[in-house]
Write a protein that binds this DNA or RNA. Structure first.
Length: 145
DNA sequence: GCGACAG
DNA sequence: ATCTTGTCGC
């Protein structure tokens, strides 16, 4: 019996990503409680969302943990426009930080800055790199013979 | 109406 | 997100 992951639908990323993330947090709490995070970083938006409830809010509320959303692309919402600087400065690769849950925007931005060695915060970057490596070696790897 | 629209 | 060719910089 396999569980199909919900498809990605713009505006509903949380419905696809929150379930497996919560499952992983639950497993972490049971097996490695010392590694339970005090704060969550999410690859996506929080209050910056069409319904002010992006993945960062969705996950933060269900996990009952502070959560900050960091998106790599600007979600187009009416009233939101890229500044002229971002439009013309091709070298600018901004990230969009928004409140997820139990944290202020000022703290979310500060925390993001302090966790960035590269463009995105290390927690998100490492999750991305390590998960891809896992898939490459355990799932997508062709036969070695 | 269609495309665009976090990942 | 994924795929994919090439380029630039440390």
């Amino acid at each position: 019996m396999v569980t199909l992951k919900a498809p990605y639908v713009a505006g509903f990323l949380g419905f696809r990503e929150a379930p497996p993330l919560l499952q992983t947090l639950e497993k972490l709490k049971n097996e490695l409680p010392d590694l339970m995070p005090q704060v969550l970083f999410v690859d996506g938006n929080g209050l910056f969302h069409s319904r002010e409830c992006g993945l960062a809010c969705h996950l933060g509320v269900q996990a009952d943990l502070p959560c900050v959303g960091v998106a790599k692309n600007l979600l187009h919402l009416d009233g939101v426009v890229k500044s002229d600087e971002h439009q013309s400065q091709s070298s600018s690769k901004p990230v969009y930080v928004s409140v997820g849950h139990r944290i202020s925007l000022a703290t979310a931005v500060s925390l993001t800055h302090r966790c960035c060695l590269y463009r995105v915060p290390e927690p998100i970057r490492q999750a991305d790199l390590r998960s891809r490596e896992y898939l490459r070696s355990h799932i997508l790897a062709p036969d070695v013979s």
